[in-house]
C-alpha cells in the first residue's frame, strides 16, 4: 500500500463522509473548542461525564478528512470509557502519530491504529491530533479552547 493509500483508507473516508456522533451536546458537563488556525480545522467536543465515566460524547465543526475521521472514530471509541482510560488512549494516539516505535500504542488503540499512516505526512499530524488535544483540554478544564499553534 502506498503512503497515500495508508492515509486515506476506506474507514477514514467513510467516517469523513458519515461522521458518527456529529452535533453538539446541550447541556454537557465538559467541552472544549479545538482550532488549527493555519488550515481552519475547527471543532467543538462536548461530553457528559457522570461518576468519572463518559456517558456521552459528540463533536461538531469542520475540517479535512483526517481531522473529521479522527474526531468521529474517537467519539465512537470513548463512549463508556472512564476519564483515565480516555486520557491513556489520548497518550497512545499521540505516540502513534508521532513516534516510530509505537507497538504498545498500536495494540492499545485497536481500530484507532488506522491513523498510523498519518506519521508519514508530518503536515497532517496536527489534523489527526486536534480533536484529542481538545478532548484533553475538555477533561482537564471542563470548558476551554485549544489551538494547534
Amino acid at each position: 500500500m502506498s503512503h497515500l493509500d495508508q492515509l486515506y483508507q476506506d474507514v477514514i473516508l467513510d467516517h469523513n463522509k458519515n461522521p458518527r456522533n456529529f452535533g453538539r451536546l446541550s447541556p454537557c458537563t465538559h467541552a472544549s473548542h479545538g482550532k488549527n488556525p493555519l488550515c481552519g480545522d475547527d471543532y467543538w467536543v462536548d461530553l457528559i461525564i457522570t461518576k468519572d465515566r463518559i456517558e456521552d460524547i459528540r463533536f461538531e465543526g469542520s475540517g479535512c478528512a483526517i481531522s473529521k475521521a479522527s474526531a468521529s472514530l474517537m467519539s465512537s471509541t470513548l463512549k463508556g470509557k472512564s476519564v483515565q482510560e480516555a486520557l491513556t488512549l489520548k497518550d497512545h494516539f499521540i505516540t502513534l502519530v508521532t513516534q516510530d516505535q509505537a507497538t504498545d500504542a498500536k495494540k492499545a488503540l485497536g481500530r484507532l491504529a488506522i491513523f498510523e499512516g498519518v506519521k508519514k505526512f508530518p503536515a497532517r499530524v496536527k489534523c489527526a491530533a486536534l480533536i484529542w488535544r481538545a478532548l484533553e483540554d475538555a477533561l482537564q478544564s471542563s470548558e476551554g479552547q485549544v489551538t494547534t499553534e
Partner: peptide, 23 residues
C-alpha cells in the same frame, strides 16, 4: 464538493505538485 482543501493538497503533493491549501 465534500473534499477539504488540505486533503487535495496532500494528494497533489504525493504527485509532486506543490499547491497551497488554507485561507
Amino acid at each position: 464538493e465534500g473534499i477539504h482543501p488540505h486533503d487535495i493538497g496532500t494528494i497533489l503533493d504525493a504527485e509532486n505538485i506543490a499547491i497551497r491549501a488554507g485561507h
